[in-house]
Design a protein around this nucleic acid. Structure first.
Length: 435
RNA sequence: UCCUCAGUAGCUCAAUGGCAGAGCAUCCGGCUGUUAACCGGAGGGUUGUAGGUUCGAGUCCUACCUGAGGAGCCA
């Protein structure tokens, strides 16, 4: 049974209406009705229903199709036909079918499965309609982030993964043996190196995996996650907030423009995403505390917001909200104090709507040498580890700032996921290191 | 680290302390438009582990193991 036609991908199928095409993929699902088989084929770019009627193919092919199992690799060829009954608008009338690879007892059936079961089979789960849609959105988010910075004159200057000590000192680090008798730590942020890079290159960003050994067990945490971190020389807090705003708007717009089929498959209410435009509401920490207390959430000035506080705060707005000027005491050691009000920092958190919480955290950095030394001491950090960082304040120090945006949180928000583990191909969590 | 919940067929789940069950998946048969198709039939069990209470434990008690959600911390 020879194949005729041009090799096509399902996402481009509309361009081939009426033509004879060859699709190379896998069997996603099969339904049968005596003299007609319905085969849902996936090829990585999309899903399409292939219709095989008994009259159109030879007898052995028809019988064979009735016994194809889920995820059998196959090549089908036939004619593309527009059909209002098909979810994608098109179907394929099969003329020839060839099995490339068998698949016996595929473990993920079209019925329900538990989280642990699916996570143990993550390498197969990503073949599903929903998971593959999320990963395609993720790729678009990453692409949009890179395009945003590249188009604005930012230089990609990556930070190391192996680091000699804590960047912020507070969170737990993953130690790894570094050659014979040294200990390195997996990075939890590229920021300090980013600051050095900004002094060299002006506007920079780094983008890579970061690691946190926090024993968090929630839907908002991973022990390995991807973060993009811009850093800008001569930037003030206002510049940083505006940059964060522009980035989020740009990423959401790009996904809306290019990933509608995926968002539909995820049943995402895109009207909420359409609202993500400039300007975002900006409030100070003081105002945020007042909002919380006004909503009946008793919150005392001075603490950091918990997840329920963030959700309640964000629910007061339909766009992402930028919260600035947190108490210095709950923030990192390198944040610049506000002029005339040193108990608060020139920092910003951007909270996503719909309960997704903090997606961005950033600040203006301390430019003054003496103040930075004092802060390092106050936080009990080892001064010798920060000598290179202090050099940045010894040699031509300038005001500067930046932020970090967690990619998985952004993907989870845009896709409407209820857990970060679906926003990355192979999530690493407290209890998950396989596959 | 703490709090709460859950482990029964390949999967998702039932089962007043009293015969171990259903749906799906698999296999066989039927059906010309199915969308988690449908209809009929068959096979499929060391109830997470170790003890204990009881005439009798999937069910009650103790310890442990595994997982989930949340807190703290963070993106």
């Amino acid at each position: 049974m020879a194949h005729e036609g041009t090799i096509a991908y399902i996402e481009d199928i509309a361009r081939h209406e009426g033509e004879r095409v060859v699709i190379r993929g896998w069997l996603h699902a099969r339904r049968s009705s005596g003299r007609i088989h319905f085969l849902t084929i996936r090829d990585g770019s999309g899903f399409i229903q292939a219709v095989m009627s008994k009259a159109a193919v030879d007898e052995p092919s028809f019988l064979r199709a009735d016994h194809l199992t889920q995820e059998t690799a196959l090549i089908v060829s036939g004619t593309v036909r527009a059909d209002g009954r098909a979810p994608g608008g098109f179907e394929l009338d099969v003329a020839a079918l060839e099995v490339v690879g068998e698949s016996a007892d595929y473990p993920i059936t079209p019925k329900e499965h538990g989280v642990d079961y699916l996570m143990d089979r993550r390498h197969l789960w990503i073949r599903s309609e929903r998971q593959s849609a999320v990963l395609r959105v993720r790729a678009e988010v990453v692409s949009a982030v890179r395009a945003f910075f590249d188009d604005r004159g930012f230089v990609l200057a990556d930070a190391p993964i192996f680091t000699p000590a804590a960047c912020e000192g507070t969170t737990t680090l993953f130690p790894v043996r570094y050659f014979d008798d040294a200990t390195a730590y997996l990075t939890q942020s590229g920021q300090l190196y980013n600051e050095a890079n900004a002094m060299a290159l002006g506007r920079v960003y780094c983008f890579g995996p970061t690691f946190r050994a926090e024993k968090s067990k929630t839907r908002r945490h991973l022990s390995e996650f991807w973060m993009v971190e811009p850093e800008v020389a001569y930037a003030t807090l206002d510049d940083i907030v505006e940059l964060a705003e522009d980035l989020v708007v740009s990423v959401v717009a790009r996904v809306l423009e290019r990933r509608q089929p995926e968002l539909r498959r995820l049943e995402r209410d895109t009207s909420k995403l359409e609202l993500v435009r400039k300007p975002f509401p900006r409030i100070t920490y003081d105002e945020a505390v007042a909002i919380l207390n006004g909503k009946g959430q008793r919150f005392e000035w001075g603490g950091d917001f918990g997840a329920p506080d963030e959700t309640l705060l964000a629910s007061a707005f339909e766009r992402p909200v930028a919260v600035t000027h947190y108490p210095s005491a709950v923030k990192a050691f390198y944040m610049e104090p506000a002029p005339g009000r040193p108990e608060v920092a020139l920092c910003v958190d951007v909270l996503a709507p719909e309960g997704y919480g903090e997606i961005i955290g950033g600040s203006q950095r301390i430019a003054d040498y003496d103040l930075l030394v004092r802060r390092i001491q106050e936080h009990g950090l080892p001064p010798e580890a920060f000598q290179w960082y202090l050099d940045l304040r010894r040699y031509g120090s300038v005001p500067h700032g930046g932020f970090g945006m967690g990619i998985e949180r952004v993907v989870a928000w845009i896709c409407g996921l209820d857990h970060l583990r679906e926003a990355i191909p192979y999530p690493r969590t407290l209890n998950r290191l396989y596959p």
